[in-house]
Design a protein around this nucleic acid. Structure first.
Lengths: 180, 180
DNA sequence: GTCTATATTTCGATAGAC
DNA sequence: GTCTATCGAAATATAGAC
């Protein structure tokens, strides 16, 4: 899929030929579906990607039951099962020709699709008296950053799988580093 | 600086002309300093970047005294004062023409420059009995991922500054989300 | 709808004057 | 050392046949 290419190699790193090859088309044929070219294709791919993430996250959380730890592990499993989203970087830094207004909208869309579902379950846990009073949005963002960062860990580089690493990170975040 | 460009826009996203402009040169003049072209320039820029990070991290830690929280805050301040490193992504995903052996070496160099200084202070804290038994390498990586992710938060997007966000994340990581 | 062919632009790299 | 000039390759985009 094209989103895989974009998130792996960045906007500038992907050519329309690569994408066309992947779909089994010629490069020029893409312009039938995306008359305005590469940039339009990128935007639509990102929109689809974020929509898929919201869906996937909410489904994963729903299937995980009501336990916070299990919910976070389900979130991690989902994020690791998908190509890295690199959630804002790509939008802001890579596509310099992108219309600023559209860039801002994409950022908002990315945030609501990825952060909100996680933020919600943290607020649930706060309301249930399970977690301390913390900023749920900041917490959700932090978690996403950590988990997305796992995509950058070469699988040969550690003795643990990415999912094991995710579980360790979740445990750290829930219980804290500090001994008491 | 060129490292700013590379870390912001990725290898493919940066042109030699941009870099030359920034240095106040013509594109062709770069070949006097980097006869082997863009790839050589990239590698040398990354090496310098990582070396600067090791230095900066160790200095920040040293100046912060022995308190763990203050040390972590100093680390955050340093990382946020620098352009995002995007620590492994750039190397693995962007430069497809890069010699695999050199890529692997760069990854190792990045790891030892960024992770090791932080890993060390976590192990110090473990030895001092301050933090629980956790995997210091995983913890250090997780912290870096969270803090580096802050570069992606548009400053207009939150009511807190990046440094405040960093302090909140550090507090969360140290004390944990879970109430007890 | 998808193709071939090609125009246009951009980029990395080289040659040679100064 | 830095420049101008330019080449060749690659990428985006367009035109038009089928």
């Amino acid at each position: 899929m094209a989103d895989d290419l974009f998130s792996k190699k960045g906007y500038a790193g992907v050519t329309l030929r690569e994408i066309a090859d992947e779909v089994g088309m010629r490069q020029a044929s893409l312009y039938y579906y995306v008359p305005k070219g590469k940039e339009q294709l990128f935007i639509e791919v990102m929109k689809r990607t974020y929509a898929r993430h919201r869906e996937g996250l909410e489904r994963a959380i729903g299937e995980a039951g009501s336990d916070l730890t299990q919910r976070l592990q389900a979130i991690a499993a989902w994020l690791l099962s998908q190509p890295p989203v690199d959630y804002i970087r790509v939008i802001f830094s890579d596509v310099s020709t992108l219309d600023p207004q559209q860039a801002e909208w994409l950022v908002y869309y990315a945030n609501s699709s990825l952060v909100e579902p996680i933020q919600t379950i943290i607020e649930d846990a706060k309301r249930a008296g399970i977690v301390t009073s913390l900023d749920a949005e900041v917490a959700a963002n932090g978690l996403i950053m950590m988990l997305e960062g796992l995509h950058n860990v070469p699988s040969t580089y550690t003795k643990h799988s990415r999912l094991q690493l995710a579980d360790m990170l979740i445990d750290m975040v829930l219980n804290g580093w500090v001994k008491r």
